[in-house]
């Protein structure tokens, strides 16, 4: 009885933390300056976020068939998410988009870069 209560609290903490990371990823994707930094921020949503949420859900479902399915979902998310990020980044690189945020930081204004 007491243990079940504790597990419930723990699972809610994990899920809330997962939700927080997804939220942070969303804010990062909106606020970061260029494509690569945005992708860097957004990749939190398909790694740490789902891992924490699924861990919380696993505590809720215990040893059962849904747990196996949850683990399967997590496995495929962890496999496909980074792959999609990689495909997006290399497509951007091939299309000629350079990671130029670092360079831009050193320069005073955008206008002078054109020279």
């Amino acid at each position: 009885m007491n243990l079940a209560y504790l597990l419930d609290i723990l699972s809610w903490i994990l899920m809330t933390a997962g939700g927080f990371f997804v939220f942070v990823g969303g804010v990062g994707a909106l606020r970061m300056p260029d494509l690569y930094t945005r992708m860097h921020a957004a990749s939190v949503t398909d790694t740490v976020g789902p891992m924490l949420v699924v861990a919380g859900l696993l505590l809720q479902s215990g040893l059962s068939l849904p747990s196996v399915k949850l683990l399967g979902i997590l496995f495929f998310l962890l496999l496909t998410g980074p792959t999609a990020s990689n495909a997006l980044a290399s497509a951007a690189l091939l299309a000629g988009k350079n990671p130029e945020y670092a360079r831009r930081m050193d320069e005073p204004a955008d206008g002078e870069k054109a020279e």
Partner: peptide, 13 residues
């Protein structure tokens, strides 16, 4: 060459 990782993972999926 650049799309090696998506190809490998995709083939697996």
């Amino acid at each position: 060459r650049h799309y090696l990782i998506p190809r490998l993972i995709g083939r697996m999926l």
